[in-house]
Design a binder for these strands. Structure first.
Lengths: 341, 341
DNA sequence: CTGTTAGCGCTTTCAC
DNA sequence: GTGAAAGCGCTAACAG
């Protein structure tokens, strides 16, 4: 591998000159030598050693992303799309994404290690939980990071999030427009922030249409498909008059469960029962019927996150920013007018 | 951030001494100074700067992994599990995984860039295709890498792969044991190597049971769920006598499509029709019925890959190795004895 | 305009 | 046993 010295020798100049050419330093290099150096560079197929550059510049151009242990069946395909888009957005700014893992019990020390060894310039945190200890830690440490997801309304840090409230609200509005009045919801356990905002959207959507909120129309649980199945079973066990005609869920996976159970019980989804998911996973358009769902604007999320990092790292900006992105509803065939409104 | 100098000053020794202690260099440091240094290190919360170390050692302790653009609906959840396990296996050896992306048209130049800038010490290549240009390039370049997946039987390089042949063969054997004789297969287009090996297993499985191979029992296509659906539709269009009682597929996603179509047509999967997938995706156990499938030994795959890299990078080993891992069949309820054998 | 030189933080000979 | 010093490959004052 040629170094800057080799190029300098080849071009008959000093290494400083090569460096100037490399970095387009205004320190005006004569066109003649510039070309000579450039020619030597291409001839030797030279590229600057990034480690040496980084040592000199005291940065790594690396963004840390902690890879989450996936609980079987619980995770969605969204995260893997997310990291792909993140890598792309990072590359557009000359960064790369360095992945690492952390033990479930102790999320913080893996981040700490990365900071102390100066492995990365910043972090992207995703899949956050309420009062996420990683975020608390990074705030205290005053280390640059941006989060996909909120953690605590009182904490001041950079985050981007999908506005789950408006997403679910739009979902409910869509159902109401179709003529539904008996709309149930399936969501995660009570302690999560993401679920909280989505339930809020559900309640707002009902309120918009002057529909009373009923406790027995909301069901909570952990596991995606299973949850969807048991949720529908639960709703169908209500008295005939109370049977919901539509079900809003907080993930496509849950919606899949609802659809499976419905088909098995001979209900035609989209006709007898309307179902809405959340995420717009790649497979959702291929379900039968294709799933109406709320689409997460992943690409925008990622570019926003990277922008925040840039603002923080480069421009030493102290002010944090928060971005709430309105998702859009993708109307497909799993929703339709109720049979008996 | 404290540097080695700060520690040296704090402990009243030279930086060399600190370095010796840090690296447990046999250059016998007296127990007394060793403790003094150690104490200074903890007091200052010091950790060696990894960039400086890397520059000195001429390595990065980074493994490059190119993130593939995911075609919506085509990808499986396996890859995202794979990269998590890979990150874990890498960390066990003091490495981290650096992700990058490449444009579909030109896979090679992104790898080239990483090499020339000395960004990574090695690559892990996954999701390979026949005659994969990335592999050809890395072989020519003589750059350390290991591949999850084969590419060309004539090329000599490090790879680990799931033995699709034995996996599908076992799947067929399972069906035969249950009493099936009319076993069809759904697979990818003809040009892929992975699909080739799996079809081979299908043929071997039939041969094992003295069942004749029929052309119209094999269907090919691209898109997972859709393919499964249309495949079943095709098979059901055969004359009554020819109707297959079991279907083997090359992915869980395809199997999902088959199951969906079957349910919709009133067939009870596991009774009227047996279906087998491949991959054992996280969600597959939660399908109704739970999917019988061939499980990829991801954890072993990843540790093997990292081992190969270690052998190549550390021990300058020239000899390549190839590992074919036998997957195991996970028997669940989507398979059962045929109704009319 | 170009070259000399001092580091960035660390490891490792080579002296003492 | 410990320290001085060279140097990994690069950038950026500072001279000239």
């Amino acid at each position: 591998m040629p170094t800057i010295k080799d190029v300098a020798r080849e071009a008959g100049v000093s290494i400083a000159t090569v460096s100037y050419v490399l970095n387009n330093k205004a320190a005006s290099i004569s066109e003649e030598t510039r070309l000579r150096v450039l020619e030597a560079i291409t001839r030797m197929n030279y590229k600057a050693d990034v480690t040496a550059r980084n040592l000199r510049a005291q940065r790594t151009r690396l963004i840390g992303y902690a890879w989450h242990e996936e609980k079987p069946g619980l995770q969605n395909a969204i995260l893997s799309q997310f990291i792909y888009r993140l890598a792309k957005a990072a590359e557009a700014c000359g960064y790369h994404v360095l992945t690492f893992t952390f033990p479930t019990g102790d999320p913080v020390s893996a981040y700490d290690e990365m900071i102390r060894t100066r492995r990365v310039d910043a972090f992207i945190v995703a899949d956050t939980v309420e009062n996420d200890p990683r975020i608390q830690f990074l705030i205290e440490r005053r280390f640059p990071f941006a989060s996909f997801g909120r953690a605590n309304p009182l904490w001041d840090f950079n985050w981007v999030d999908t506005d789950g409230t408006s997403g679910v609200r739009a979902a409910v509005a869509h159902l109401v427009a179709l003529g539904h009045r008996k709309i149930a919801m399936v969501t995660w356990p009570e302690n999560g922030l993401t679920g909280y905002y989505r339930v809020l959207g559900y309640q707002q959507g009902l309120a918009d249409a002057n529909i009373a909120f009923r406790d027995n129309y909301i069901l909570r649980g952990e596991q995606g498909i299973e949850l969807g199945r048991s949720a529908l079973a639960h709703f169908l066990s209500l008295s005939a008059d109370d049977l919901p005609t539509a079900i809003v869920t907080v993930s496509d996976l849950i919606a899949v469960g609802v659809i499976q159970e419905a088909e098995q019980r001979g209900l035609e989804v989209g006709k007898d029962l309307s179902v809405i998911g959340f995420d717009d996973e790649p497979m959702s358009r291929y379900l039968r019927p294709p799933l109406t769902t709320v689409s997460q604007p992943l690409e925008t999320i990622c570019t926003e996150l990277i922008n925040m990092l840039n603002a923080q790292v480069h421009e030493q900006q102290e002010k944090t920013s928060q971005v709430l992105l309105t998702p859009h509803l993708v109307e497909r065939a799993s929703t339709g007018a109720p049979r008996r409104p």
